[in-house]
Simulated scan of single mutants.
Amino acid sequence: MSNPTSKPSSPSSSRSRPVLIVSAVAAAAVLLGVVSYTATKPSSPGAAGSSSVADVSADPSAGVYPHLEAYARRDAADKLALGRADAPVVLVEYADFKCGYCGKFARDTEPVLVRKYVENGTLRIEWRNFPIFGEESEAVARASWAAGQQGRFWEFHKAAYAEGAKEKGFGKDRLAALAQEAGVPDAARFAKDTESRAAREAVRKDQEQGYELGATSTPSFLVNGRPIAGAQPLETFTEAIEAAAKAAPGKAGR
């Protein structure tokens, strides 16, 4: 789980949120904000994360803050989401393309979740750009949004999280190369969209949502209102997804 060097002040818009949601966010922050890097880093070089910090009960209601389910947008037009808008379970991921643990989750865990749950209609994955490592993080976040405007977000996501990709940096030329690798059809539009006000606003909106939740490091997740901090083992996510699906009987795999 990677930590930023600094955190911007909380967005003023959060002050207007209903008291119940603010209370739920405060509770979630215990998991998303207070959990330290030491507690969530992999216990061994080959591990995805420490299961001891994010143990998930099979009880569908354990560790769930119902009001946090509202953070799932369920927008059928969302170009940075994967799966049915009406899926019974939504996994919201707050991540940075420069985060090594985010890359490990993207390569090792997410594809399994897609095959096992997204493809049968149980799960929807909604991406939130949460850049915390400076200018290059911001730039690649905008670029991923720009790729999404041409229907190639997940292809860009795969290219940017490929083994060794972040070590090459995310300068302007590198972003163009990643877009080409992702099959983005219009390079000129991609370049323009990456630097657009719309891209900056979309990234800012995602980032502010993450900070509202108390997330100060990446990756951080919500599974139907259940916070999970760090790139935990596959079993943590499967247990959370199956518990959430169990709480929504008759909806999975529609």
Rank of each mutant, 00 (worst) to 15 (best):
E235Y: 01
A47T: 07
M1G: 08
R189Y: 03
E135D: 15
V56S: 03
R204S: 13
A106C: 09
K79G: 01
V118H: 06
P66Q: 10
T194E: 03
A159S: 14
E201F: 03
T122Y: 03
A95T: 14
P4A: 15
V90Y: 00
L80D: 09
I132C: 04
V112Q: 13
P66I: 08
A248M: 02
A252E: 07
R174N: 11
N224V: 06
V92D: 05
A147M: 08
R74M: 05
V184C: 01
V223Q: 01
W154R: 12
A146W: 05
P8K: 12
V34S: 08
P219T: 11
Q180R: 15
S16E: 13
W127F: 14
K172F: 04
T109Y: 08
E119N: 15
F130E: 08
P11N: 11
F133H: 15
G169C: 09
S2Y: 05
Y161V: 09
K192D: 10
K98M: 14
Y94M: 12
A215P: 00
A160S: 11
F190R: 12
S57Q: 06
D78V: 05
S57G: 07
V114E: 12
E135P: 03
V22R: 15
D173C: 00
A244F: 08
Q232F: 02
D55A: 14
W154G: 07
Y71M: 10
D59V: 04
P8L: 06
Y71C: 00
D193R: 04
D75C: 02
R73L: 13
A139V: 04
P185E: 14
G171E: 08
P42E: 03
G210T: 11
Q232M: 12
T38A: 13
L178I: 07
G46N: 13
A231M: 02
F105R: 12
M1W: 12
S137V: 06
W145K: 10
E136C: 01
D96L: 07
Y37I: 10
Y117R: 12
G103R: 14
R142W: 07
L91F: 09
I228G: 05
Y65D: 01
K192L: 08
V30D: 09
S16V: 05
F190D: 08
F105A: 07
F130T: 10
K168D: 07
G210Y: 09
C102Y: 11
R174Y: 04
H157M: 01
R115P: 00
G164V: 05
A240R: 09
G49A: 03
A76R: 15
T122G: 01
V64H: 04
E138D: 13
E119M: 06
K79L: 06
A191N: 05
V203P: 00
S44L: 01
A244L: 02
A179G: 14
I132F: 04
R128C: 03
G148F: 02
L222H: 11
P11Y: 09
A160L: 08
